[in-house]
Design a protein around this nucleic acid. Structure first.
Lengths: 146, 146
DNA sequence: CAAAACAATTTCAAGTTTGAAATTTATGGG
DNA sequence: CCCATAAATTTCAAACTTGAAATTGTTTTG
């Protein structure tokens, strides 16, 4: 248990990283609210289901979004009530539930995706191609989902 | 409104950044819960008040933490009820409220800070000194508070 | 096979978070 | 001075989030 001279710097980086993330999240939340009357968690679910068009189980969904199972359940509940996603029971394992976009959900996401990407692009317009290379490499070494 | 070839890469970086942040937050949350029976938002408030030992206004606090005023109010309410922080009304402007650590709050934070730093240090042990230099530079260009 | 162990999801209570509205206090211009 | 506006905080409803417990279904194993 020796004293690591980099420890304080790693802590500072973490604080700064949190600042960047929260600021960007705030901007995206505002964009979704003002421009499209929706929220970040809803958008995240739609985006995950768009990437896996054939549907995913509830467990896969919560792993993809890095949220608890209970959380995935409630967000999907609301989206289902609004007709944007659909639940289907698995035939082979009746514990398992698949979730997928409905046509309405697909339409809503497609209407959002391009603008969302443009927002992110604008938020991080300061990053050059070289930055992106470097950052990709560093972020890989910072852990994240497996 | 031209097509930016870096746009998709910036989006990918954002997704990855969120993954790193949420994973680290999850680990820190678990550490605080299992090891110290507390939560991340509570820790964040204590840390902010530790950095500004003379006290801060509620508005300053929510700006420091990048959360809404209403959020700051409720977290401070609970910490106050537990005797870890204290509210004081300003004499010069009776709208303004100062918040500061109590001796108990100070003690709790000091008992936590070193372990918290060690956790963060372990989470990001993959970062070399050169990484830290590079990352600091890049994060500055990614916005963040102010 | 029956029981125990395991797995997927939901439910639940408590806490967190937001954004808007309400409250209280200060300030500036007529 | 008076009123409109602004500022600091709290309140509030709704949504989000977690982690633990409960439910239901599957698998393993004695």
């Amino acid at each position: 248990m020796s004293h690591d001279p980099l420890s304080k710097r790693r802590l500072k980086i973490w604080i700064r990283l949190l600042g960047v993330t929260r600021t960007a999240e705030g901007a995206l939340r505002e964009f979704l609210r003002l421009g499209h009357d929706t929220t970040l968690p809803r958008f995240d679910v739609l985006a995950a289901l768009y990437r896996r068009r054939d549907g995913v189980t509830m467990s896969e969904l919560s792993r993809m979004l890095l949220v608890s199972n209970g959380n995935a359940t409630t967000v999907v509940d609301r989206l289902e009530k609004d007709g944007l996603v659909r639940r289907t029971q698995s035939d082979s394992d009746r514990r398992t539930v698949f979730v997928a976009l409905t046509p309405e959900g697909l339409a809503q996401f497609e209407g959002l995706a391009a603008e969302h990407e443009a927002q992110v692009n604008a938020l991080f317009s300061g990053l050059t191609e070289a930055d992106l290379d470097t950052l990709t490499d560093i972020l890989k070494r910072m852990g994240g989902p497996k």
